[in-house]
Write a protein that binds this DNA or RNA. Structure first.
Lengths: 129, 129
DNA sequence: GTAAGTGCAAACGGTTTGCAGCCTC
DNA sequence: GAGGCTGCAAACCGTTTGCACTTAC
C-alpha cells in the first residue's frame, strides 16, 4: 500500500461519477498528490480486473471509471459530468440471453449504457461535455 | 463516384458482418484495389453520417462498420467473425426512456450491444478473436 | 477546367510499456 | 534487503489531417 494507491482509492470513494483516468489524475494533482499518469492507469486496470471498479466507454471512446457494486448492472450516466446511477434490468438480461440463444449464439455478453443529461447539468445550461 | 468508392460500396454490400476500417482496407488490398487507408476512413465516416452504415464499438475499443437498415436498431454480433443480426427491442427503448425520465435525465440516448459466438465460429473452435 | 477525391506521411490522443530508481514491509 | 511499485519518456495503435497530386465529370 503506497500513498499513491491510497490517494486513488480515496478519490474513487468520493466520486459518485464516471471519470476518465486522465481526469482522475488531474484531480489528484490538484490536491497536491505526487502521482504519475501511468500509475493511475496501472492501478485502475488492476481494480477493474479485480472487480472493484467499473469501466465504461464514453460516447467519445474514452474509458471512464467508477467504484461500483460488484454484481452485474448497467448505468444511466450524465453525458456532461459523468454522474451515474446504477440500474439493473433483469428483464433486459433475460431478453438478451434468450434472443442470443434463439440465433444459436453462445458465450453471450452484453453492453448497455444509457446516456443523458442529469438535472443539475441541464439546469446549469451548456456546460462543455 | 471514384473506383475507390465503388470498391468500398461493393465490399460493404457483400459483408454481412462488422469489420474494422483496417480490416476492410486489408480486404480491398487483397483484391488488388489501389486504395489508401485514409480514404477508407474518410468514406466510412461519411456513410456513417449519412446513415448508410452503422458503427459499433467492439469490446476491444476498435470501431467496426457494417451496411445497415436505416431505422434505429441494435445488434447481436459474433465476437470472432463479426457476423451480426439486427435486433429491434421496442420494449428496451421504452424502458430506457422511462427510466431516464424517472431520474430527471434528458436528451437520452442509449447503446446496447449483444456479443456472442455465432454457431459457425463455435463449431470451428478456437479461432482467434 | 475545376472541384472533389485521393495518397502519403506526419500529427494526434488515449493508453501501454521498458527501465532505472524508490519505497514499503 | 528484496520485491514490488512508481515515474518518466518513449512506444503503440487506431484514427485524423495537411497538403500536393490526381481524377471524374
Amino acid at each position: 500500500m503506497t500513498h499513491q494507491r491510497r490517494a486513488i482509492v480515496s478519490i474513487l470513494g468520493e466520486l459518485q461519477s464516471f471519470q476518465s483516468a486522465q481526469e482522475i489524475h488531474a484531480l489528484l494533482k490538484e490536491r497536491g498528490e505526487t502521482i504519475g499518469l501511468a500509475t493511475v492507469y496501472r492501478y485502475l486496470a488492476r481494480m477493474v480486473k479485480s472487480g472493484d471498479v467499473d469501466v465504461m466507454n464514453r460516447e467519445d471512446g474514452e474509458s471512464v471509471y467508477m467504484r461500483c457494486s460488484r454484481q452485474h448492472h448497467h448505468h444511466l450516466a450524465c453525458r456532461r459530468c459523468g454522474r451515474a446511477i446504477e440500474i439493473g434490468g433483469p428483464a433486459i438480461e433475460q431478453w438478451a440471453e434468450q434472443l442470443a440463444a434463439q440465433h444459436g449464439y453462445t458465450d453471450v455478453t452484453h453492453a448497455l449504457e444509457i446516456f443523458g443529461v442529469c438535472p443539475d447539468c441541464a439546469e446549469s445550461g451548456g456546460d462543455t461535455r
